[in-house]
Design a binder for these strands. Structure first.
Lengths: 197, 197
DNA sequence: GCGTGGCGTCTACAGCTGTAGACATCGACA
DNA sequence: TGTCGATGTCTACAGCTGTAGACGCCACGC
């Protein structure tokens, strides 16, 4: 079997399609190995293209990464649209996470070592997750609770998918979901935040 | 001013001290930039030593990293010894985390992109955190709850220190701690886990 | 004082990285 | 059918990486 890059002989000098192929190849590669773990040649090869063409279309590896981040965070299936569904959605997404999924959180977790990638990721998370989520949360200190909500999301994802914690791998889905729900609920619904005078 | 590596002129051909200097330099560098973000020459230079000496003492960069991980996870100030203090300790440690701290979690968060580093880190976390913690937790499914406990710890740490979430940076310490405590409590104390038959 | 064994460095080597300019080739339009 | 712009490739270059062997040098024991 040949290496079969993503639709090599099907595409014949189509600039838009080539750009899309590179972007998709980069998304998969960056998500799987992180910003520093992937070379431009590797991305180009998987897209059936030369390394130089990547820089022609995207300017540099860093700019390519920025576009990849934007694509990865565009479809945010983790954040529900209404407050009542937030916890259920998040918990369900966590227990259903497949090891080969390519969402933005996985991309972030493997790329935060690089300072430039981190800066891009911070901005993207702020725009696509933090701000919409804190706008959705009722009660006081919504920005703080939204950040913690995302922290739990990222932390569980890190342990079960990136680090490969055996405890989270062997746990059956319904039980894990029953544990996660109240955790998120605690952050969604502000618990009578009376400060002691 | 000269670059002043860690005690250069103070140490004169002392094998144990040199080894220790390299180990400490590597700990700081790996924690700050991750496994792939640091070169052997950089570590050696900060220790006032040549790159080759690093491999002489530790065999390879990977083995050096393994020793660094062991050192970083040896002093686990995040996990209390008794069940009652667990939540308080964890919450307090999170709000008191300084940007330049060098604990194992930070080291992990910036090195999980590399597969070999990940394998080393997974084993270390299992030994130094997961196993002691799940042995301490009362009730059913302690391993699962311990893993989630560590997930929250790692996730918050990631957001506030590695990614630099502004929401967690501007939050004042007491309020943040009051939010974190019940989160950990929910995982420490099993909430009447009656399964519907 | 002097040899000797450990401690440390110098030079080097493949291999990889991101990026740049010059060159080739396809395909649509005249 | 011929041509020219767009699309893609080739060669190359500094710079970095981890690792290896050969060599210098200091301090201690005789």
């Amino acid at each position: 079997m040949e290496d079969a890059p993503t639709g090599r002989q099907a595409r014949r000098r189509d600039a838009a399609a080539t750009r899309e192929a590179i972007l998709r190849s980069a998304l998969i590669a960056f998500t799987g190995h992180g910003y520093d773990g992937v070379g431009v040649r590797e991305i180009a090869n998987a897209a059936g293209v030369t390394a130089m063409l990547v820089n022609r279309y995207f300017g540099s590896k860093e700019q390519l990464f920025a576009e990849v981040v934007e694509v990865a965070f565009a479809e945010r299936t983790l954040i529900a649209d209404d407050v009542e569904s937030l916890s259920r959605f998040a918990a369900a997404a966590l227990v259903a996470a497949e090891p080969r999924s390519v969402d933005g959180f996985l991309l972030m977790l493997r790329s935060v070592a690089n300072p430039r990638a981190t800066e891009i990721l911070r901005a993207a998370i702020d725009t696509h997750f933090q701000l919409p989520l804190q706008a959705l949360l009722p009660g006081a200190q919504a920005h703080e609770r939204a950040a913690l909500f995302l922290s739990v999301l990222a932390g569980v994802r890190l342990m079960q998918q990136v680090l490969g914690s055996s405890a989270l791998a062997t746990a059956d889905a319904p039980a894990l979901e029953r544990r996660l729900r109240p955790l998120f609920d605690l952050l969604v619904h502000p618990p009578a935040d009376a400060e002691p005078p």
